[in-house]
Amino acid sequence: MARVTIMIPTQRRLGGLAVAARSVLAQAGVDHSGLELVIVDNDQVPSAEGVARALAAEAPFSIHYVHEPRAGVANARNAGMAKACGEFVAFLDDDEEAPAGWLAALLAAQERYAADVVFGPVRARAPDAVTEHRDYLERFFSRIGPAEAGVIDHYYGCGDSLLRRSSLPDPVAPFAAERNHIGGEDDMLFGHMRAAGAVFAWEPAAWVWEDPVPDRLTLDYTIRRAFAYGQGPSAHCAAAVPPDRAGVARWMAVGVVQAALFGAVAGFKWLIRAGDRAEWLDRAARGLGKTLWWGPFKIRFYGHSA
């Protein structure tokens, strides 16, 4: 049985999948006999099967291909969890590339801090053709955390993380299906784990590259995504059992202030064509999301089958 499962969910990104998977196969400083790679294809047709088979032919450890035709990021992750055999599960996205020491750094941090989840930095890189708002776009898709390794009191997203399977509330299907189309299934899981006393750790040495797909390197995408990120705190309070109505009201009030203040600054910055205008628009969108977080305002980012 594998000690560590590395999981890559994917949907119609064959080139990115190949880069991500080959970076997993090249991991150093770990015992390959205790590893397995699970590729979860979340396309209606098994479009990634050929890539998975070609990778399996060159792999130093087992590669398992899982076809999950039901659209949705939670469905994909849960299908991978059902196949995974590892005591630990490491997540890598299909637009990420891991340096050779990535997995060893995650495992060392998990052991050092007895962590239930370990997170690492993400360094986004935009193509040379992207010139307008380049710095903002690369920061948007990056994950920047503490300079030093250690236990942390908050959590990040699933990409570039290592989970101790025994700490999960459900070791087979821990991701909430209601988040299939809007995302945040990992935030919901980690929020429940934190409430149950899980230990989170950060390891700066466990960093990965991220190469966002070109159609996401636009303000149209990132500002809509910032709005959705802003919805997270309010929606999480509403989803608590019992619902945290005071928390919802508090976050909505914070959002009103942020949207008004940051929106005014963004408007001024746009008028003078300031270099940091996109950052202020992003902040205003996150504030607005805290206020407008319920059903009609939810934005679908995942789960499209076509």
Rank of each mutant, 00 (worst) to 15 (best):
M1E: 09
A2T: 13
I6P: 02
M7L: 15
A18Y: 03
A18S: 12
A20Y: 05
V24Q: 03
Q27V: 00
V30Q: 04
V30G: 01
D31H: 02
S33K: 07
G34R: 15
E36Q: 14
L37S: 08
V38P: 04
V38E: 04
I39Q: 01
N42V: 01
N42D: 07
D43E: 08
A48L: 03
E49N: 03
L55R: 07
L55Q: 08
A59I: 01
S62V: 11
H64S: 15
Y65H: 09
Y65C: 11
V66H: 05
P69F: 07
R70Q: 12
A76Y: 07
A79D: 05
A79T: 05
A79N: 02
G80V: 07
M81D: 00
M81H: 12
A82P: 09
E87F: 00
F88A: 06
V89H: 04
F91H: 08
A100N: 10
A100C: 07
G101Y: 15
G101L: 06
L103D: 10
A104G: 12
A104V: 06
A105N: 04
A105Q: 03
V117A: 15
V117K: 10
F119R: 03
G120F: 00
P121I: 06
P121L: 08
R123E: 08
R123H: 13
V130H: 05
V130M: 12
R134G: 04
D135F: 10
D135Q: 11
Y136K: 14
R139S: 06
A147L: 14
A149V: 02
G157V: 10
L163R: 06
R165W: 05
S166L: 03
S167E: 06
L168S: 12
D170V: 06
A173Y: 02
A173L: 05
P174L: 14
A176F: 13
A177S: 10
R179T: 13
I182T: 08
G183F: 15
D187N: 08
G191S: 09
H192R: 15
H192V: 11
M193F: 05
R194H: 00
G197V: 11
A206T: 08
W207V: 02
P212N: 12
P214I: 07
R216F: 11
L217E: 10
Y221V: 09
I223A: 01
R225M: 14
R225C: 05
F227C: 09
A228L: 11
A235M: 13
H236N: 08
C237T: 03
C237Y: 01
A239C: 07
P242M: 00
R245Y: 10
A246Y: 00
A246D: 12
V248E: 13
R250F: 08
R250E: 10
V257W: 11
A259I: 04
A260G: 03
A264C: 11
V265E: 15
K269N: 08
K269E: 06
I272T: 12
W280A: 11
A284P: 09
A285K: 08
G287P: 09
G287H: 10
T291Y: 12
W293V: 05
R300A: 14
A306E: 12
